[in-house]
């Protein structure tokens, strides 16, 4: 199968790759680009382990064809911590013990970041609704929801303009 040349941006850096038309973005991220932080749990859009931010929206990378990444801006879990500093969501997940096995954690942090980027002050129900597409089998979600709310609070506090 002839490969297609794709130019895209991942975590703020320009990236080029060759992909077969049948390859998913998930497969290319993991197998071609070595970005294995994005996880595969179901490969049919039901578990959210492969959540990435694609032009500002959360998508399941398993349900996006790699060739669709042409010209897009993509953020994966590897791009959440910046300048050697954990994102407040990552810090909150650690402090709230919001992960057990950790396999769903990258997808949930990515999805939660997309939420907080657009809605900095969600309530608990909103967080549960937003994360309903990200399955976790270990935690019962309790500590995950708390961590997202704690991170939202921390981000709000950071954004108070300094005088």
């Amino acid at each position: 199968m002839a490969k297609v040349h794709v130019r895209t941006e991942i975590n703020g850096e320009p990236v080029e790759f060759l992909a077969e038309p049948r390859q998913s973005l998930l497969e290319v991220l993991r197998e071609e680009l070595g970005l294995t932080g994005t996880k595969e749990g179901c490969n049919n859009g039901n578990c959210g382990a492969c959540s990435v931010i694609f032009d500002g929206r959360v998508v399941n990378a398993c349900c996006v064809l790699a060739v669709e990444a042409e010209g897009a801006r993509i953020v994966t879990i590897e791009g959440i911590a910046r300048d050697g500093e954990l994102h407040p969501l990552q810090q909150a997940f650690l402090e709230e013990a919001a992960l057990q096995c950790g396999i769903c954690t990258p997808g949930i942090i990515v999805a939660a970041k997309a939420l907080l980027d657009r809605e900095p002050n969600p309530d608990e129900l909103r967080v549960r609704h937003w994360l309903a597409g990200n399955l976790c089998r270990c935690t019962g979600y309790d500590k995950i929801v708390r961590a997202v709310l704690a991170a939202a609070e921390r981000l709000q506090a950071q954004e108070v303009p300094q005088r």
Partner: peptide, 23 residues
């Protein structure tokens, strides 16, 4: 006490290697 787990940072940054990540 409730300290941060030793493998925590790797797991929240996507660097922890699970079986499917072996290359």
């Amino acid at each position: 006490t409730r300290p941060i787990r030793p493998d925590g940072v790797e797991k929240v940054t996507g660097r922890a290697l699970y079986g499917a990540d072996v290359r």
